[in-house]
Write a protein that binds this DNA or RNA. Structure first.
Length: 286
DNA sequence: ATGGCCGGGGCACCCGGA
């Protein structure tokens, strides 16, 4: 009877796998060794829906929700229990005229698990500051804000996770060198993401310290203050061995969920394997 | 100072990644 009264603990993981087909064994192995993970959010699946390897996940009793394209991008949700109200792309809730070309690349999928909407994102990389891809990244983030505003009209329990391709603080990067002119740490990218995360924070509350009472807050920083914790390491220059990484994969939680959060951690193990993804999973429990 | 290494497409490198 007590179990009916106490809310279920949930674990949500985010992992940019850099090709779901190439990383299939790593992913299924990870699910087996992490049986408490309720939902795994994948980015960069790099496969059209017809060719997504659903069977290996279904054999492990997971439900798969996929939104992919050829060769690039692609996101998926791998869930122990069926999800409610699954949505693909910005266009699921925003008008086509404001979405424009921003759903051409498959980067957005979400579903509701136990009353919490889980939004899985693969934010554009941006290539280099000032490039066409950089402008696309900033436009994409501006549309994301509109998407979040609309989403928060229907729920106050929201976990926005994924590969954000932005490190918000200097301590999220192994070095201070050139960060102001580097993609993923430029002042404009950081300012744009901070503005996105401020959704739901009323004007009167703007002066108050983060993360409460409004806006989305970084689950990892609820529990860990120091730098040196990363989720991505360049394949080149033995970056992982030297821990020359970036923390660019995140779980941003709405206030109620942030209060509930019990743990948030980075699992380094998959990055140590042969032929790893360049990212490693980030898990939140609430 | 620069670039290093990957995956996909497709069969020679090129695009994109971050």
């Amino acid at each position: 009877m007590l179990s009916l009264l106490k809310p279920n603990r949930m674990q949500v993981a985010s992992w940019n796998v850099n090709s779901v087909r190439t990383r299939l064994g790593h992913i299924t192995d990870w699910l087996k060794t992490n049986p408490d993970v309720d939902i795994l959010c994948l980015q960069e699946t790099k496969v059209v829906d017809a060719d997504f390897p659903k069977a290996p996940f279904e054999e492990l009793n997971y439900h798969t929700y996929i939104y992919g394209q050829k060769a690039y991008n692609g996101v998926a949700l791998i869930s122990k229990t069926p999800l409610d109200n699954v949505r693909m792309g910005f266009g699921a809730i925003l008008d086509a005229d404001i979405v424009g070309d921003l759903d051409d690349q498959k980067r957005v999928i979400s579903g509701v698990l136990d009353g919490v909407r889980i939004l899985n994102l693969y934010v554009p990389n941006g290539s280099s500051i000032g490039s066409e891809k950089y402008e696309y990244k900033l436009r994409w983030l501006a549309l994301l804000k509109q998407y979040l505003i609309k989403t928060l009209e229907e729920t106050d329990k929201l976990n926005v996770c994924g590969d954000f391709n932005i490190a918000l603080e200097n301590k999220d990067i192994y070095t201070d060198e050139k960060r102001d002119t580097h993609i993923m740490s430029s002042p404009i990218e950081r300012e744009t993401l901070r503005d996105v995360l401020a959704v739901g924070r009323s004007m009167e509350r703007e002066h108050l310290k983060e993360p409460l009472p409004g806006g989305l807050a970084d689950a990892f920083r609820k529990f860990t203050d120091e730098g040196g914790h990363f989720s991505w390491w360049d394949y080149r220059a033995a970056s992982f061995r030297r821990n020359m990484g970036w923390r660019i994969d995140h779980h941003y939680l709405s206030p109620e969920l942030y209060k509930q959060a019990k743990r948030c951690w980075i699992d380094l193990e998959p990055r140590k394997l042969e032929k790893p993804s360049d990212h490693t999973p980030v898990i939140v429990e609430y």
